[in-house]
């Protein structure tokens, strides 16, 4: 009886199911890695530390690559690049997309038409192809890959924000604020935007993993990070040359998988939490 009471007392809310906890732990782990990797007692990710192509062992848990570099060290250091770049891309895409989407939804008319046609044109291209074309024209490199990904991602947020603004701006409290003499910027910033952020947040969380994946894809085909920078996509590309030395790809592969899964789990949980209908 007392045990049952204890379980009931610690029962998690619906949105915080096991996957969310797992996702949270994964994200926490990678965040800790990004913040503290320089203090870890691991090998240099750039220098040769052992014989080349050594399988996993006690000394090198994920083995060594074709240049004798520790795959575990490169995988962990790769997190900093992949995750920080994803943060920057998502932040920029949300900033640009939400600003333009809010303007389009609030102003409407000709401005709305122009912005949304731009969104339509951008979304008409498959993301990977558009990112490849932009990176190829700007030249390979991390900065250009990030620019390409921002170009690919902002329209999603513009469309989402426009929809939210269109829904909120016809609500009575907004009409009341306008009738009370509130200016456009005050109406938009104070009365509309605070009610639009939840789907944006959910989407941004879910997209985080997708940006990691796209960044890795661009590096895999040689358009992202330049060697010898430890980056998950380029590590997998290098591993593919030595296809039967499976451990070279395994480290960055597991890292990508865990980050994408982690953020998807959290995104799902957030959606459940923020959507009253799913409670």
């Amino acid at each position: 009886m007392s045990q049952s009471v204890a379980i009931t007392a610690f029962r998690l809310p619906n949105w915080a199911k096991l996957p969310v906890i797992i996702g949270g732990l994964i994200v926490l782990f990678w965040t800790a890695v990004v913040l503290t990797i320089n203090f870890w007692p691991i090998d240099d990710p750039i220098e040769m530390v052992a014989k080349r192509l050594m399988p996993p062992s006690a000394a090198h848990w994920f083995g060594t690559d074709a240049l004798g570099r520790d795959v575990l060290s490169r995988t962990l250091h790769g997190a900093r690049l992949s995750l920080l770049m994803s943060c920057a891309v998502i932040a920029a895409a949300v900033g640009i997309g939400c600003t333009l989407g809010a303007i389009a939804g609030y102003v409407g008319g000709f401005v709305d038409g122009i912005i949304m046609r731009l969104v339509d044109i951008t979304l008409a291209f498959p993301p990977i192809l558009l990112a490849m074309a932009i990176t190829a024209s700007l030249g390979p490199g991390l900065e250009n890959a990030a620019i390409a990904m921002i170009v690919v991602w902002w329209p999603v947020y513009a469309r989402l924000m426009r929809g939210q603004v269109l829904t909120v701006k016809v609500r009575e409290h907004v009409e009341a604020a306008i009738a009370g003499g509130a200016g456009h910027s005050r109406t938009l910033l104070t009365h509309i935007l605070p009610l639009t952020w939840s789907p944006i947040l959910v989407n941004a969380t879910m997209d985080f993993g997708q940006v990691v994946l796209l960044a890795a894809s661009l590096s895999f085909i040689g358009l992202g990070a330049s060697p010898p920078t430890p980056e998950w996509g380029s590590m997998i590309s290098e591993g593919a040359i030595h296809f039967y030395k499976w451990w070279i790809c395994a480290g960055p592969g597991i890292a990508i998988l865990s980050v994408v899964l982690g953020f998807n789990f959290i995104g799902d949980g957030l959606r459940d939490y923020l959507d009253p209908r799913s409670r």
Binding site: E47, M48, A66, L67, P227, E238, I241
Partner: peptide, 17 residues
């Protein structure tokens, strides 16, 4: 690219080291 079985990315990284 790969020339005569040598991956030039690998070669360049070795020279870089």
């Amino acid at each position: 690219m790969n020339a005569y079985g040598v991956d030039l990315s690998l070669l360049s990284q070795k020279i870089q080291q």
